[in-house]
């Protein structure tokens, strides 16, 4: 899931200080699950802004709505008749949702209320950890399910490097060495010889915006 963190309140307040009528839009998918930008967080932020602006004697008219997904046209459509009444939009969706929202309403300023942080897992309620950098060249099969791109501080594709030290990385004693973990797990699974396989260098072409069209859906892209 995509994990985000709400921006510091002062930063949000500063961004919209000149705006008098704003719509705060939440997203009911990833950011709702990671407790950053769902219905509840929208409620809290909207109230906080309202209170702060009253205190500053610069009142704001701020409304709120949470749609199922901001990265999906079908759901954004619900805002079409609504947004024209507002001076600006505040979005609590991930970076993808915010951009899609801004793309749909190019004449209205859109401000982000969260920082999109990573693709991660849920360790416990409110506790998330990064696990994937969406590099487009997954090697988890040969690294025993430990991602060297994300979990290795240097993102080394063929490791370990010379900086591995008793299970930790040379950059910090708090940073586990991903390649040590890969070694241990491969050994446990009796396939340590696979660590010798050389993985070709990352396809850096993946650094530019990527598009995925799933098999069987090619027609949709061609038609649009």
């Amino acid at each position: 899931m995509i994990v985000a963190e709400r921006k510091p309140f002062d930063e949000i307040k500063e961004m919209i200080k000149e705006r008098k009528k704003v719509l705060n839009i939440g997203c009911g998918t990833c950011v709702a699950v990671c407790l950053a930008g769902g219905e509840k967080e929208v409620d809290v932020l909207t109230t906080e802004i309202e209170m702060a602006r009253k205190m500053d004697e610069n009142p704001i008219e701020i409304d709120k709505i949470t749609i199922e997904r901001q990265c999906d046209r079908e759901y954004l459509e619900a805002l079409d008749d609504m947004v024209k009444d507002y001076e600006a939009l505040l979005s609590m969706a991930c970076g993808a949702g915010i951009q899609f929202l801004a793309e749909r309403y190019p004449e209205i300023p859109v401000y982000p209320a969260v920082n999109t942080t990573f693709i991660g897992i849920n360790q416990n309620v409110g506790w998330y950890e990064e696990r994937c950098r969406s590099c487009s060249s997954c090697v988890l099969g040969m690294t025993a399910g430990v991602c060297p791109v994300t979990m290795c501080a240097k993102g080394v594709f063929n490791g370990p490097c010379g900086g591995t030290n008793k299970g930790k990385c040379e950059i910090s004693a708090d940073q586990p060495c991903a390649w040590y973990q890969i070694y241990e797990r491969l050994e446990k699974q009796g396939r340590l010889d696979e660590i010798l396989e050389v993985v070709p260098a990352q396809d850096w072409e993946n650094q530019k915006p990527r598009t995925v069209v799933q098999p069987g859906y090619e027609k949709v892209k061609e038609e649009s």
């Binding site: 509840k40 809290v44 109230t47 309202e50």
Partner: peptide, 11 residues
Amino acid sequence: VDVMHMLGAIN
């Protein structure tokens, strides 16, 4: 008791 219950009351 939720954050919004308390915040809403103050607001």
